[in-house]
Amino acid sequence: VVLGNKVISHLMLTEPAPLAANQDDSTNDSSLRTLLTLCDLLNRELLVLIGWAKQIPGFSGLSLVDQMSLLQSGWMEALLVGVAWRSQGAPREELVFAGNLRLDEAQCRATGLADLYEALRHLTAKYEAMKLSPEEVVTLKAMALANSDADPVDCPDSVQQFQDGLHEALQDLEATRRDQNRAGRILMSLPLLRQTADRAVQNFLRLHRGRRVALHKLLLEMLDAK
């Protein structure tokens, strides 16, 4: 696919197709309906993400404990890369969670997701300004997971190798660009992603506790791990 880098070709090939939202119809409250629809989508995205992670070169070689730790700390970052990428150029600055689930600022506020909206628009604007390529996006997503700073690490050397493999892939990818600062700029966008994901997790936990929104088991388990 790209420059002969096998890792990135593999990431491009295994990138999951976007999911569609299943409209919730269990309540007449439209903001609650939106929230439940979003939570159902996130739960299914998580399932797909776990399957995707297993296919990242090097991931399956990690101990089961490290695989779990990386996913538990990095899942929201990996999911938000996709949302921010899809939301680029969206009319009315919507967040595009799925092709059929686009929420503008007012809808997010009504749903209790004002904080998530603000954080994700900031991230989206950053990615938009960077003009990321699809290859860079899949690499960024894998790096976010590999770099999730899970603690404690079971086999530090294996995790380091996993990270190094992805870093090399990024360097390979950027080697042909004229812009020598490109790889560094992509790495420097990771803190904002971490910060955005933290705010997203806090927002969902607040809604779960405050509005007593029932969450799917997998989503709840992953939020709890935070």
Partner: peptide, 20 residues
């Protein structure tokens, strides 16, 4: 492990159905 059993099951590629 007990607390994170769904993730654990999914990573182990368990053939038993996972209750999501």
């Amino acid at each position: 492990k007990e607390k994170h059993k769904i993730l654990h099951q999914l990573l182990q590629n368990s053939t038993s159905p996972v209750d999501l």
